[in-house]
């Protein structure tokens, strides 16, 4: 699947408290969470981001709490894919489980700036920075994670497995 959108660039160690501050965790409504996405790092982000845009960030994206509200907020804000140097462990799992596409590609992160137009092919992991005229290859999605994605997320995978076991 090919995606094309505008890049919103963030730094290293973007934690889940920045992605969605805990003061908004008294709800799990995706639209409400999306309104406060990235609020403490970039208060204008939620209003500015357009459906299909991309988030690009540095090292250890999504560190901190296990709140799935973080990938939910990003996805509901309209972000189509997050490209980072690398992801924190729980965020990585959560993103695959609930169906937010993520890719690891340090080179693409290094070159990208906010406002660049990027296109991403999720099936091949090829990232093109159209503004800079450069092409990158993201780290391949591990086979098991691909299996989860193909099944339609963890719950679909689980119910398929449970069903098969009966």
């Amino acid at each position: 699947m090919s995606l094309r959108g505008v890049c919103h660039k963030f730094g290293d160690h973007i934690d889940t408290d920045v992605i969605i501050p805990a003061r908004y965790l008294n709800t799990s409504d995706p639209a409400e969470l999306a309104r406060h996405c990235m609020e403490d790092a970039d208060p204008g982000f939620a209003a500015r981001v357009k459906k299909g845009d991309l988030m690009v960030a540095g090292a250890n994206f999504g560190c901190g709490s296990s709140r799935e509200h973080a990938p939910i907020a990003i996805k509901a804000a309209g972000v189509a894919v997050v490209v980072a140097e690398y992801f924190a462990r729980i965020f990585y799992r959560n993103a695959f489980n609930m169906g937010l596409p993520i890719l690891e590609c340090p080179e693409a992160v290094k070159d990208a700036a906010s406002g660049d137009t990027l296109s991403v092919d999720l099936s091949t992991g090829v990232i093109v920075n159209e503004t800079k005229g450069r092409t990158y290859q993201a780290a391949p999605v591990p086979p098991f994670m691909q299996e989860l994605l193909d099944a339609g997320g963890l719950m679909a995978y689980t119910m398929k497995t449970v069903g098969a076991g009966r």
Binding site: S66, R67, E68, I90, R93, N94, N97, M98, F144, G153, L154, M155, T158, M159, T161, V162
Partner: peptide, 18 residues
């Protein structure tokens, strides 16, 4: 170890996790 809500949902059904 910490996991997210969807992982918890899956484990509540199966009693297992990967």
């Amino acid at each position: 170890t910490g996991i997210g809500s969807t992982d918890l949902a899956s484990t509540m059904i199966t009693g297992t996790i990967w």
